[in-house]
Simulated assay, not measured.
Amino acid sequence: MVTFDFMLPYYGDVRLMQDAVRSVLAQTDPDFRLVVIDDGKEPEVPGWFERLGDDRVHYTRNEQNLGITKNFQKCARLSEADYVVIMGCDDLLHPHYLETVRAVIGDHPGIGMVQPGVDVIDGEGRVTQGLADHTKKRLYAPQVQGRRVMGGEELAASVLRGNWLYFPSIAWRGEALREVNFRDDYSVIQDLALVVDLLESGERMVIDHSTTVFQYRRHAVSESSVQAFSGTRFAEAERYFAAVAARMDARGWPKAARAARFHSASRLHALTMLPGALRRGHREGARTLARHAFTSGQS
């Protein structure tokens, strides 16, 4: 029987993390391990996990803050199971998540990735669909009724055009995840980079929209957030798309290379952020956003 690890890299809101943990423990399929890697300092957290008294739960706190990428890398490294989920510490599983994903894997032995059905929720837990998720669904995600297997250049081109995946909901083949792991040089786009790296190594994905089993929490972007409008994430994106386009060309995947050079979803996202950056007086960020939105690597 396939075994599962739920890896939970944690930093932030204690209550939301506790809700995420409870959603794992409420699975109808009890055959799993939950590993929580705490990158924070909240004093009440270790005692709360100790009081759970569940042998399936393994909790550890980092001696020093690692940051998101290194904590993700640690999650992949410490995973042991045949399949691994690296869920967000504020996301929620439906009770039948594991049961559903295990059935998909049973029908597709050795599959590299499973993208199950996802609802998006807001900070209060209400199902919602903002502009970003509506765009994902209508413009970039493949139209799937039931299940579909994708891989190679087809899937690479699709996600490089617009990353419609919900990374924390994906079940990864553990051996492949541990071998490839997350790249050191990305802090925002590391999820897309991992998927493309796995596709290059020959892994495929089952997209299963037959039932919704995961709730992905999307918080509203604060208008006062300097980071949101600094343009830093888009500078990283430009660097990534240029590098991956060259790799796609070398691999003989021209459609994926073109998708990377144009990266239409990322440019559209930058365009939607530009007015807020201008209103907040982030001039350098606005220049970065404008460059990303209005230029591409298309020859």
Rank of each mutant, 00 (worst) to 15 (best):
H219F: 10
S222N: 08
E223L: 08
S224N: 12
S225M: 05
V226Q: 14
Q227M: 12
A228S: 13
F229E: 00
F229Y: 15
S230R: 13
S230W: 14
G231A: 01
T232R: 12
Y240V: 07
F241E: 07
F241M: 15
A242T: 09
A243P: 06
V244P: 02
A246C: 00
A246F: 04
A246G: 07
A246D: 15
R247F: 06
A250L: 09
W253T: 09
A257M: 05
R258I: 08
R258F: 03
A260H: 02
R261W: 02
F262H: 12
S264H: 05
S264T: 10
S264N: 07
S264K: 05
S266W: 03
R267N: 13
A270F: 00
A270D: 01
L271Q: 09
T272M: 04
M273V: 00
M273G: 01
A277F: 05
A277V: 00
R279C: 07
R283G: 07
E284A: 15
E284R: 15
G285L: 02
A286Q: 02
T288K: 14
T288M: 11
T288R: 15
A293V: 07
F294T: 13
F294N: 09
F294Q: 09
F294V: 12
T295K: 01
T295F: 02
G297H: 04
